[in-house]
Design a protein around this nucleic acid. Structure first.
Length: 412
DNA sequence: GCGATCAGCT
DNA sequence: CACAGCTGATCGC
């Protein structure tokens, strides 16, 4: 769960993924993806007033995130629409209005990088007079993924990144290794195919525990089996507007694969959230329930990895391996590849609730030698011991600046 | 009676 | 079993 307070050390008038408290004084807003823990305050009257009464204050997001936000079925985010701006896939020039009368607005370049976390999820790369900083939001990048991102490089090599704000959900050695997404998809598709081939009375229910995040897996299941997947009406209304997802889903419950939500009540005869009863022509219904979840492997278990876990009891789901966060080693790869001046955690991992420990770990991924030897005093002036203290300064708590407030896809 | 926050569960 | 989100209790107004 995100513990990022909304603001970075740089570009202090920018707020990302937090829309409450001090963030109400920011003059430009960014949303990395539509998970609730990144939308705190987004539906508050305070934020809506803030953004609607200041015509030059905008909320930036990806085209897909806008579709999902506008289609939300629990909160009404439509009032925000006039102030939402879609980020182009390439570099965008974003104006940061000043919140004092005499100050001039600032320009900053913002490049959204696909984060691989859930539909529409992006990282934000900021480049401007306060330096180059990267906020990852939640992300899953596998090894060497960063090397394929042109925006992170210039003619000299990897760009000089001042600060990296990174998703540390699994920044613990006990979550050292996750199988690749392709591996997990492959194993799951085979499981589904083998099941459906048994008979016409065999059906599949993908019981995804979270709102968004397993769509990629579901699309791959559709592409391999050619069976469209049942989604709830309100989800379909969004999916149908998103290029990569539109074909894979249907609102017709009479299909052999369902992903229509999470079943909570056991009142109906159906074992599906939509309540549909299949006509199996007097044969017994055979339903394969698969539940994608993160499975991880420590250094010592990498070799024995099993990507599908058979249920202990017949009514339990098959668990299949799928993670939409990066593993410990994937986090390490990205941090050491970018080798920023400073790196800050966006999340305190649940199984390791010691922020200092997470910070120390992130710091250990940095390669200090070249910059210290080159005499770049600004980069790491304090050396190893002191630097550790310097960058451990709490960022995840609220920062108060006492600022004067004047300024009160691919989509189909 | 409402919203915000939190514990607990999944 | 696994980091997102729901439910229900509690608090404050």
């Amino acid at each position: 769960m995100s513990t990022f307070c909304g603001r970075m050390k740089e570009y202090r008038q920018v707020s990302i993924d937090r829309f409450d408290k001090d963030n109400l004084y920011s003059t430009v807003y960014f949303l990395s993806h539509c998970h609730r823990d990144h939308m705190v305050g987004l539906n508050s009257t305070a934020f809506i007033n803030r953004i609607l009464t200041n015509p030059n204050i905008y909320l930036y997001m990806s085209d897909v995130s806008k579709v999902i936000l506008m289609g939300d079925n629990t909160y009404d985010f439509k009032p925000l629409e006039p102030q939402i701006r879609i980020l182009e896939k390439s570099t965008n020039t974003v104006t940061i209005p000043c919140n004092t009368l005499d100050g001039k607005p600032k320009l900053v370049s913002v490049t959204p990088l696909p984060a691989g976390h859930c539909p529409g999820s992006v990282m934000f790369l900021f480049e401007g007079d306060e330096g180059t900083v990267l906020y990852t939001g939640d992300f899953r990048w596998e090894k060497n993924h960063a090397a394929n991102m042109p925006a992170l490089r210039n003619e000299l090599g990897v760009k000089h990144i001042k600060s990296l704000y990174i998703d540390t959900t699994f920044c613990t050695p006990s979550a050292c290794h996750f199988p690749s997404r392709a591996q997990c998809v492959d194993v799951t598709v085979r499981l589904v195919e083998e099941w459906l081939n048994r008979s016409k009375s065999h059906f599949v229910y993908v019981a995804s525990p979270t709102n968004y995040g397993h769509e990629h897996l579901q699309v791959q299941i559709y592409k391999h089996t050619k069976h469209q997947i049942h989604a709830s009406d309100w989800k379909y209304s969004m999916y149908s507007q998103i290029q990569d997802l539109a074909d894979a889903f249907t609102t017709d419950p009479n299909t052999r694969i369902h992903a229509c939500g999470i079943k909570r009540t056991h009142h109906s005869k159906s074992r599906l959230p939509c309540g549909h009863l299949f006509d199996t022509e007097d044969e017994e219904l055979k339903l394969l329930v698969i539940r994608p979840s993160t499975m991880w492997f420590t250094m010592s278990t990498v070799r024995s990895e099993k990507l599908v876990e058979e249920p202990m009891k017949w009514y339990q789901p098959h668990r299949v391996c799928y993670s939409f966060h990066s593993s410990f080693s994937e986090i390490k790869d990205l941090v050491s590849y970018l080798n920023p001046d400073a790196v800050y955690p966006n999340v305190i991992p649940a199984q390791e609730p010691d922020e200092q420990m997470v910070q120390a770990r992130l710091n250990s991924f940095l390669r200090t030698e070249d910059k210290l030897l080159s005499g770049d005093d600004n980069a790491r002036p304090l050396g190893n011991l002191k630097r550790k203290k310097a960058v451990t300064t709490k960022l995840s708590s609220s920062l108060s600046d006492n600022e004067d407030l004047v300024f009160d896809s691919p989509v189909k």
